[in-house]
């Protein structure tokens, strides 16, 4: 599955944010998103997200699966697989079904995994709103 996910990240992608591009606001897509530039706001898709090693994201990311090689300041809520590559730096909480962290990746935050973590995440949301 992991290799499939990596193959998908190099295949046709619906939205590509190039290295010279800065986005401010809510980036929503129905397909895969590949980010090589900067995003501030939110990133949402039911499909895959790939964050390149030069990318800087100051945003919460909600996606089906994700491969992170760049810098993310925000929470990651991933329904399936999350891969943190060796160049990844994450400052924020992670919720996912399956997590793979490569040597060298930096992660600072809480991590919830599996169905149990989903339930906990849902329980916590109202508390933070209050």
């Amino acid at each position: 599955m992991d290799s499939n996910l990596e193959n998908e990240a190099t295949g046709p992608t619906e939205t590509i944010v190039g290295p010279s591009v800065k986005i401010q606001g809510d980036l929503n897509s129905e397909g895969d998103i590949k980010i090589e530039g900067q995003v501030a706001g939110t990133v949402t898709t039911s499909q895959n997200v790939y964050v390149g090693d030069k990318a800087v994201i100051t945003a919460d990311v909600v996606a089906g699966s994700a491969i992170i090689a760049g810098n993310v300041n925000g929470n990651l809520k991933i329904s399936n697989h999350l891969i943190l590559q060796s160049t990844a730096t994450i400052s924020g909480d992670i919720a996912c079904e399956v997590l793979r962290v490569e040597d060298g990746a930096h992660f600072s935050g809480k991590c919830n995994m599996g169905g149990n973590s989903k339930a906990k995440t849902k329980e916590r949301e109202p508390e933070t709103e209050e």
């Binding site: 190039g18 010279s20 591009v21 800065k22 986005i23 401010q24 606001g25 809510d26 980036l27 929503n28 706001g41």
Partner: peptide
């Protein structure tokens, strides 16, 4: 500005 949702600044 895209779809009234986000703004892109790009060097192109």
């Amino acid at each position: 500005r895209i779809d009234n949702q986000y703004t892109i600044t790009a060097q192109t």
